[in-house]
Nucleic acid binder design. Sequence first.
RNA 1: GGGCAGUUAGCUCAGCGGUAGAGCAUUGUCCUCACACGACAAGGGUCAUAGGUUCAAAUCCUAUACUGCCCACCA
Length: 874
Amino acid sequence: MLEKAYDPKPVEAARLASWDAAKLSHSEPRAGGRPYAIVIPPPNVTGALHIGHALNNALQDALIRHQRMMGRESCWVPGTDHGGIATQNVMEKLLKAEKTDRRALGRDAFLERMRSWTRDCKKTILGQLHRLGCALDWEREAFTMDEPRAKAVYHAFKTLWERGLIYRGERLVNWCVRCGTALSDIEVEREERKGALYHIHYPMEGGGEGLVVATTRPITMFGDAAVAVNPKDPRWKHMVGRNVLIPFIDRSIPVIADAYVDFEFGTGALKVTPAHDQNDWEIGERHKLPAIKAVGPEGKLTEAAGPYAGLSREKAHDQVVADLEARGFLRKKEDHKSAVQTCYRCLSVIEPLLSLQWFVKQTELAKAPLKSLDAGEFKIYPRNWEKPYRDWLVNIKDWCVSRQIWWGHRIPVWYKDGEKPLVSQASPGAGWTQDPDVLDTWFSSALWPLAVFGWPEKTADLAYYYPTSTLVTGYEILYLWVARMQMMGLAFEGKVPFADAVIHGIVRDKSGKKMSKSLGNVIDPLLMMDKHGTDALRFALLAQAHPGKDIAFDEQSVVGARNFVNKLWNSTRFVLMNLPEAPPAGGYTLEKLPHGRLETADAWILSRYQATLAKARAALDAYDPAAAAEALYAFLWDEFCAWYIELAKGRLLGADGEGKENARTILVQVLTGSLKALHPVMPFVTEEIYAALKPHAGEAAEFVLKGGYHRLDRDRSDAEVEKQMSRVMSAVAAIRSLRSQLNVPPGLKIKAVAEGPFARDLIGKHRAYAMSLAQLESIEPVNGGRPAQSATAVAEGVTFFIPLAGVIDFEKERERLSKDLAKAESDVAKCAVKLGNLSAAAGVPAEKVAQAQEQHGAALARRDRLKETIAVLS
RNA sequence: GGGCAGUUAGCUCAGCGGUAGAGCAUUGUCCUCACACGACAAGGGUCAUAGGUUCAAAUCCUAUACUGCCCACCA
């Protein structure tokens, strides 16, 4: 016998052990049928998993399990990402705490530390995914920096090089001073910050008034190559062609005319610093200006800054502004908001810096992804992400792939004096030195769906699983990762790496704020699992995972989910308690039900059951786990438990016979089928329950995943019986409401007298339902007028009189009924409007009009019954 | 500056052309023989605003106002 309350811990441990022992989630290529494959977005080896990972992986697991239940060979590849800058930053923090740094260690020792850290971290992360119940194919674990993946990276680099798509050049790149490396354009974030616009006077060379420029960053003036004005600007026309002097250092620069300059802005004169600003760089190109660095890679001012050389950007800024003011160069300072660029890894301000870097040409590579999007070979869910994705590809710029850090795939290019650079994985021989930089971590990530299956080798796995089916990820890496995988997959294999990309939202805190360590609002998924169980956490996340929407996460939702798990558990307990120890031969199967001789409740729950299964399945197919979870939750709790179980109790407690056997069969089958449908969302409790139910259900599958979903049987759908039941429910609800409002003690059975078109059915074939659910002592037809001293309950098609001598306060009763009447009147009015509309309009289907008429009739009847009753009371 | 979402019950969110829904929270009654992680009942919304389309609009269209996100070279 099951325990009274579900205890997740022992169940989860035992289930995981049995799944592992059976290698349940392992997949091998097999003949026949297209497989379903997902590659995990590999978590960075920077620490532990957070709640966003829990959502991301619960989603994937639900899809993988769903497809397995549908009978498809399904493979979910696990793995981790070395995480380049992010991981190196973690290690550098550790080293700092040890009062050392990477340079003191040296490259080799540093990398050794990184590898050891990575080993531990991988273990932690994969252990957490395991604990979350992820049906990952553990034998396929991959790491972006392991041997096979390194081979893939090399091969990709070499191929791109040979195709002329990789080049090295000195360009203006986004430089993170803190991380000490270049970043690609999409690794830069923007943040609006308050600052100032400084109007600085540049004197004319050889004396004269000169002009005033406006800038937000005075320190870049030491790198100025010119001052530009708009050729149409009359104020400055006379200055073009003359020279001005940079304050403090007195370097002479020309005044040039360039249409880029907006004469509405600032003073209409723009200082041009090609080495520190993209636009200025372009102006410099047009006018053949020198690019002079004012700030170096460490964030300190260079020799070009004369007296300020060596100062940090921040110190220099303050000093320069103060000096400009003291010397009278500062003509004006106004408040100004500007978007500063920040490093996505450490949030420090980006310095646009001229440096020698490796680039991948993108325009050519972006064509195939655009084509596959247009052809519908690749879809993004929800579809509204396709537009930004397309726009990004259309406006794509070359990708800076070199990083000046140590942790990563070292660029496989070797140099030797007097020789052309060589691309090689190993050293070409003595005298050759390898490029010191490593590749952007997203370079290896871009190859992930290929590399995990052994590419560039033509493996059987690659042939079978590639292209994969679905990729599940957050919108923050749509360009960074999704687009690049599409580019690489198409470039190397000519096929999209995955047909569908499912974009989910971010898990935020309960007030909708982004979780962050500094705000202290992070939710630890492990803690949630410890407190409430893994199934509860998964359900809570998935039930809120509406396509593409962020989740405002409140621990309360996990508690609610935990309650649902318990409800499921206890309903199983109830069913098992009402079954004989030994199930009948072959178990309780739906095939054994007598056709055409089912009770209303039986036919009703089967009808609802089929509808629910269909809905849940369709929702998962449409990547909408929330809809699936909600449908199953509502069905199991509000229909199966609240009504069907209650309706079946009479038969279960009564004498043996067909009715009892039917009830048992339906309880067993509906519960078993529902928990299977729920399995993708809550694998543990459903597996546990399945183990207890399967002998009774006549099933022998070792695991839920092996057995597959129950068959959908649309013949069980029965609109007529659903209507009958809704009337029974309405009748019961009316009496319950009356009891509650009149404070009739719950245990006290009362007599009821019924009249109306539905009264005969209720007193006849639905008698037992009404009696037990409404706690009635008896139910009889009205025989000559309503009983004296009775309260009235009006339901759909039936009116009850409940004799309650001495209990009724007529004043209160009238009040109560008046409230009902008001509601009924408003219903009548609404129905009348609708009916009037429909009858007046042309081209409305007769069916719709009939339906409206029926609704109107029912509302009228109810209203009239209430009116009569109140009249009698007065 | 461009684009995309969102604005529905106290909170978090479904619904997206035919009488306003869920979970949580609130109130009342009940430890009723599966479940107090429960049962039953109750209260609570002019569906952001203004126009329009329609027999009918929370739902479609057009503006407006906020909110959030993405993209973008205004110093």
